[in-house]
Design a protein around this nucleic acid. Sequence first.
DNA 1: CTGACTGACGAACGCTTGTTCGTCAAAAAA
DNA 2: TTTTTTGACGAACAAGCGTTCGTCAGTCAG
Lengths: 209, 209
Amino acid sequence: MSQPALAAVTTAEAIREQAALLFFERGYDATTLRQVAAAVGIKVSSLYNHIDSKEQLLLSVMGGVMDDLLALQKVAVSRDMDVIDRLIAVLDCHIRFSASRAREVFIGNAELRSLPTDARAKVIAKRREYERRIQDLIVEAGEQGKAEVLDARLHTYSIVAKGTHVASWYKPAGALSMDRIINIYAKAALRELSVNDADTRVDGWPAAA
Amino acid sequence: MSQPALAAVTTAEAIREQAALLFFERGYDATTLRQVAAAVGIKVSSLYNHIDSKEQLLLSVMGGVMDDLLALQKVAVSRDMDVIDRLIAVLDCHIRFSASRAREVFIGNAELRSLPTDARAKVIAKRREYERRIQDLIVEAGEQGKAEVLDARLHTYSIVAKGTHVASWYKPAGALSMDRIINIYAKAALRELSVNDADTRVDGWPAAA
DNA sequence: CTGACTGACGAACGCTTGTTCGTCAAAAAA
DNA sequence: TTTTTTGACGAACAAGCGTTCGTCAGTCAG
């Protein structure tokens, strides 16, 4: 009743929602289960009808985010296209995801260290796979002479960093629309790789020429 | 005695050193004063002969980092040079600082929310001033026709993001030397701005041509 | 030698944390 | 209707937190 109208049908969903919000703005360790309960509108003990532990709540908040990202990237890469177009698709996917699911992405980055060791290792492995796919695309573009690669790893980091950063400040109501951010960051990334028709390519995306 | 040989003459310095280390790898909230004390080799109560509170300890760890960064940037900008050369100097300063003082920079970014409101506001103000100076340089380069600016703010964010990211992974013993990282990221940033002789400019830096 | 000062220490404090448990009303199933 | 399940609740828990305090050995100035 007193809560803002975030669509949550189940109490369990509402808990994850409010927990994500609090984890985002205060951090996992600084967030109390009593605060989460208050945000949902119930008492602490009632929380345990829906969650197993605080740690598992964090896990379920961070839960699928890396899987979802990997899945979207796989789709973007798998299309039968020019290397550069695939790279553009991956860039679009990366920034769009980082912005549209900013809170989860941010938590996934910031609270990695709050995870138990084994869970953390799994997430890191997925992250590495994700970065690897970007890097491979960059290398491929370089080998085809369509990009001037300075250092594939650092170019990859540069792209990843943009996403991480976006996740920390993007607000849907902000002055910069998501499409503009994606468009410009894609252009910037292609320029950084000295892709010849960088700007014009991105302007025609994703619509066909 | 049992501690690694980090140069710390005063006990107070050792405390800041170990606290920085623990804050870096576990986060402020997850770090116990008892852990800090143990790392230094003393007991908790002895800590209070050197610090006022945990919060003030964080403050003194994050303390001067933004001031130092601003001071270095001011020097880099103030030299009487070509816009692009000043921009290169600022890029060099940004990445070098983010790498060489990675732990403090990382803590400064990650634990901003752990600061009391007024202290946080001050740091944010300094950060904005810092970013503003980069942005002004980019705008100036654009107005002089020496760069093709897509969006000054996003270009600035792109640069800032590289530094933030570097601070999270740079290790002195790593495969990438600091000079290489700086060199490549500077080139990348100039390419992103479509500065004509981007690569050759950076190679001649900072030595005179 | 005597005195003041520094800094490490153990014990304890008040408080908050995550979590458990028994209870009890309301809804769903029989 | 009776029975079973669901989920909210207050009370309580042990553990851990930051912080305080009195004590006491050692150091250095007088």
